[in-house]
């Protein structure tokens, strides 16, 4: 039995991969969300700022047009501020130290059979599972 969420997941996944293919073949860039934003934050990517800002503008604005087609769209993010801030700091620092996140190492790296992408994905999946299970089932904070 195929659930509807899985179909939406797969179709949305094809769109994500299509976006990465477009950015690679037309702009010659790897579509990594943490790299595109991080290069603006730490100034290392200011020479390509216009391209980065245009990408982020599309990423932020287009979902506003898509959201009305869904009955409920909610991030369901936790209300625990300490967890949100600690998690945000870890995601920001970690992705830049590892030079990639789910899009750069995951989508773009695995698809070119990059060892670094595969190793990064294994470690962030394992750490994510351990953090999630510990916080929910042992500490009960999320």
């Amino acid at each position: 039995m195929i659930e509807q969420d899985w179909v939406f997941g797969f179709v949305g996944g094809l769109m994500i991969g299509g976006a990465a293919a477009l950015y690679l073949l037309v702009n010659g860039r790897i579509m990594g969300a943490s790299g595109i934003l991080g290069g603006l934050v730490d100034r290392s990517g200011w020479s390509t700022a216009a391209e980065r800002l245009a990408f982020i503008a599309g990423l932020v604005l287009v979902p506003i047009a898509v959201v009305p087609f869904f009955t409920t769209v909610d991030t369901h993010i936790t209300g625990n501020w300490a967890v949100i801030i600690v998690a945000g700091l870890l995601v920001g620092a970690g992705t830049r130290i590892a030079k990639g996140c789910t899009s750069g190492h995951g989508v773009c790296g695995i698809s070119r059979f990059s060892l670094r992408g595969i190793v990064a994905t294994v470690f962030y999946l394992l750490a994510g599972g351990i953090a999630m299970v510990t916080a929910r089932h042992i500490l009960g904070i999320i």
């Binding site: 959201v67 936790t78 700091l89 870890l90 970690g94 590892a98 670094r116 750490a127």
Partner: peptide, 29 residues
């Protein structure tokens, strides 16, 4: 740094459920 960074990222991702792409995509809602 690849391993340490990925472990840090994974821990934050597990705690909040957001990675950098969705964090920007969900800004409006």
């Amino acid at each position: 740094s690849l391993v340490i960074g990925s472990v840090m990222f994974g821990a934050g991702w597990g705690l909040a459920g957001l990675c950098p792409g969705p964090a920007m995509a969900s800004l409006s809602f």
